[in-house]
Amino acid sequence: MNYFIGIDIGSTCAKTIVMDSDKKVLHRMLQPTGWSSLDTAEAIREKLEQLGVPTSESAIVATGYGRISVPYADKSVTEITCHGRGACFVHGSENLTVIDIGGQDTKLIAVESGIVKDFIMNDKCSAGTGRFLEVMANTLALRPDELCRLAAQGGNTSISSMCTVFAESEVISLIGRGEKKENIAFAVVDSIVKKVASQAGRLTLGDKVCLTGGLCEFDYLRESLSRQLGVAVETDPDGRYAGAIGAALCAYNIRK
């Protein structure tokens, strides 16, 4: 086997990682998931071929909510196991708590000795997820990253509703009342952070807490999460690939 590939098809973004036999990352790919996971998977396959990584000579593990839509994968593994393993790899530690704020769900994963020991995943509702942030950013005519940057300058405002639909109307009425944009942005981030922290309360946090997934690049979110949890939440530039990296690591167990 020449290549070990992890494909993480999330609700908004698909991440692909290619590793060689020494677990060195050769390629990272990122693309929007679009309407059809199957089409996305096919687009990924074509790109891999172009990069000179034939899927036929690779061990492939798919993860994420679209994991069942990758016909050429050898195996599918849940994003919980993959994020746990991937975060260990990225952060060089076998004992940590992973917070992954994904597009449609938020996961908290406790890893001990490299093995997932416990996890929490939000129920049906989208409170405290990337989706929540996206909807609120849209309402404020901002990009999610802009919203987070702006939030750093705001304060003294809060949104009480956890439900995305109700929270959106709260935001609209705040706009109507002439509340400053940065204050509303602050309230949005604050709401996500509080929701995640309340979920974290049900899990015993390890010494090291890491944020993975698409939102890990938003500094202000990370800082405010650290403050709320009372621990320094760490991130890594590869954090958003944690799921795909974990999947690629799972691919080493495949015998062909």
Binding site: Y65, I80, V116, D118, F119, M121, K124
Partner: peptide
């Protein structure tokens, strides 16, 4: 049936664990 996919993921992850 709205939460079937999500539930399956949680159960599957539990079994993997």
């Amino acid at each position: 049936t709205g939460d079937s996919g999500q539930l399956a993921t949680r159960l599957e992850a539990f079994l993997e664990m």
